[in-house]
Design a protein around this nucleic acid. Structure first.
Lengths: 187, 187
DNA sequence: AGTATTTTTTGACAATTATCAAAAGAATCC
DNA sequence: GGATTCTTTTGATAATTGTCAAAAAATACT
C-alpha cells in the first residue's frame, strides 16, 4: 500500500472502492529542494502529504519572511485558510529538501466527499486532527516563554533542528534568530 | 426553526430526517452567570452552541487563570483537545453572563455521524470552520504586536470590550492587564 | 447614600526580547 | 584550496512587556 493510503489508515478504514477512488485523484511527485508548492495570493488548489522530505510555510510581514510552519515525513502541508475558504492567502510553501510528496486536489476531493460517506468521514477526522494540532501549538505560543517553546521543540521534533536553519526555527517559535541563539547558549 | 439548526444551516443543508435526528440529541438550557460548562481534567462530553450570553475558556498557568477564548452569541464553545481526543485537558469553560445554550453530546453525535452522511459532512465543515478561525487567531498571536491585536479585536468584536473584564481580554490577547491598560491609554 | 468589592489605571523597576552591526564559523562552488 | 555565500554567534543598545504595589474609578450591595 502506498504511504499516503497508509497515513489515511491511521484515521479510518476506507472501503476498497473508496481507497481506489482516493488513489485515483492523488499523484506522487518527486520534487527538488527549493520548489514552491503553494504560492501566496493564489487560491491553494492542492494539499500535499509529505512521504519524504521537508517543507516550510512562510509569509512576509513588514518585508521579512516569517516561518509559520515546518512539516516533515508524515505531515500534510497546505494553506489552511486558502484551501478551505477558497480565497487567496499570504502563505507560501516551499521545499527545504529534495522531497517525495502526494498531491491532493481540492476539487476532486470535494467530489469524493459527496460521493463516499467514508471519505467524508476521513475528511472530518483529518480536519479534527489538524484542529487539535493547531490548538496545541496555539497553547504553546499563547503562554509559554520562548525558552519553554524551544525546549519543547527539542523534545518533540529534535530532527528539525538538524535539518532547518536556525532563523526559520526561531521564526517558527515566534522569536528572532539572535534570541534563539542566546537561548541555546544558556542551556 | 431553532437557533441551533439555523446556525447549522450556514454550513450545509440537512435532510429533514437528519435535522430531526440532530434536534433529538441537543437540548436547550438556560443557565446562570458563573456556571461551569466544562471542567478541567475531566473528559469533555459536550460542546455548547451559545444562543444568548457569553462564555470564556480558561486554564491555570503557574497558579494564574489564563483566558484562552471568549465566545458569544453564535459561537460554539468546547475544549477542542478533550472533546476530540477523548482525553482530559486543563481547560475550563464558564459563563460570564446568564445564557441560553444548546448542549451537544459527543457520543450521540458520533452515532449520527456514522448513520447520516449529511451530518458527517456537517461535522467536517464545522471542523474546517474551527480550523480556519484558529489559524487566523494563531496568525495574530504569532507575529502581530500586542497593540495590533488589540486594534483588531476593537474592529472585529467591539462588544466584547463592554462585556468582559479587562484582565480577561488582556489574557485572551496574550498580554497582562497592565500592558493592555497602557495600550488603551495611548490610543 | 454609603460601604464593600471589583475593576482599571498608574508608577517604579526588572526582565525579556528586538534591533542593528559586525565577527566568527560552515558550507558551497569553481 | 581559496573565494564566495550562507548561517550562527556575539556585542551594544533600545523597545516592549512583565511584575509588584498602590491609587483611582467603577460597580454592586444593603
Amino acid at each position: 500500500m502506498n504511504p499516503f493510503l497508509q497515513y489515511i489508515n491511521n484515521f479510518t478504514t476506507l472501503s476498497a472502492e473508496s481507497q481506489n477512488a482516493l488513489s485515483a485523484i492523488v499523484a506522487q511527485l518527486e520534487l527538488p529542494k527549493g520548489e514552491t508548492l503553494i504560492r501566496q495570493d493564489v487560491i491553494c488548489e492542492h494539499a500535499y502529504f509529505i512521504e519524504k522530505g521537508l517543507a516550510r510555510t512562510y509569509y512576509y510581514k513588514d518585508g521579512r519572511a516569517v516561518t509559520d510552519w515546518l512539516g516533515a515525513e508524515g505531515d500534510v502541508v497546505v494553506s489552511i485558510v486558502s484551501f478551505l475558504m477558497r480565497q487567496p492567502d499570504r502563505r507560501n510553501v516551499e521545499l527545504l529538501e529534495n522531497s517525495i510528496v502526494w498531491k491532493i486536489p481540492f476539487y476532486e476531493l470535494e467530489i469524493l466527499y459527496a460521493k463516499h460517506h467514508d471519505i467524508e468521514r476521513l475528511g472530518r477526522l483529518l480536519m479534527s486532527h489538524g484542529l487539535v494540532m493547531l490548538q496545541q501549538r496555539f497553547d504553546d505560543l499563547h503562554f509559554a516563554t520562548a525558552s519553554e517553546r524551544y525546549q519543547k521543540l527539542l523534545k518533540t521534533k529534535p530532527s528539525l533542528l538538524q535539518r532547518v536553519p536556525l532563523g526559520m526555527i526561531a521564526s517558527y517559535l515566534g522569536i528572532t534568530q539572535e534570541t534563539l541563539s542566546r537561548i541555546r547558549a544558556q542551556a
